[in-house]
Amino acid sequence: MKFTAVIVEDLSVAADVLHKYCIKSGKINVVQLFKSTEEAIPFLSENAVDVLFLDIEMPGANGFSLLDQMQYQPQVILTTSKTEYAFDAFEYSVVDFLRKPFSYQRFTQSLDKLKPLNEKKEEVEEMSHVFIKSDGKLIRLNNDDILYIESMGDYVKFITNDKKIISHNTIKALTEKINPDVFCKVHRSYIINMNKISDIRDNTLYIANAKIPVSKANRSTVMSRIKIV
């Protein structure tokens, strides 16, 4: 089975060569090519892909801002002509970092680092709950019990109907670990359980009695995930 992929690259020569490499490998099915993050966001909000080939410096928003706005975590291979981004790449847990221009051989080395598709699916199936570290214990929380998660600097607060549990973690790190079918990052300080929203008014949503802000960057993703009849 082939990986589905999207290429986000503003330089057409680079996008063409990368596309050609994908076809040649026989492992990647490129479903779309985009020239900017702004063009890619609406598509990626509605279509989950396995792999994202992403340039970093592009007109408008850069590649990392696209990763910040995504509600699921595809496997990311960065393509750039600068090496200064290596540290950020590490922060975003990218699979590989390709310096343009790169050879076909170097490209195939990147593909070898991708997690097989069945391995990823098993991971998601197992994501019906999380274990969080708090007060020296590992506490099990079922996804369905979590209303939302709020950032507190280096800590996060898990809010359920009857308790608040504080754990050493960050919203960014959690985004990659929680079940993307259930949870959604709506703001840099909030992840919510999509099944718990009671009301949305402008840029605020309500869960139980809590008012939760929705950032401009995340609004289109949130709206694309709710069913309006």
Binding site: D10, V13, V17, S81, K82, K100, P101
Partner: peptide, 20 residues
């Protein structure tokens, strides 16, 4: 600076890494 960055890899894609 942004425009220099944008086209910089084209030299490399032409096999002229010194120019890149």
């Amino acid at each position: 600076k942004r425009r220099v960055h944008l086209v910089k890899p084209l030299w490399g894609y032409c096999g002229l890494s010194e120019f890149q």
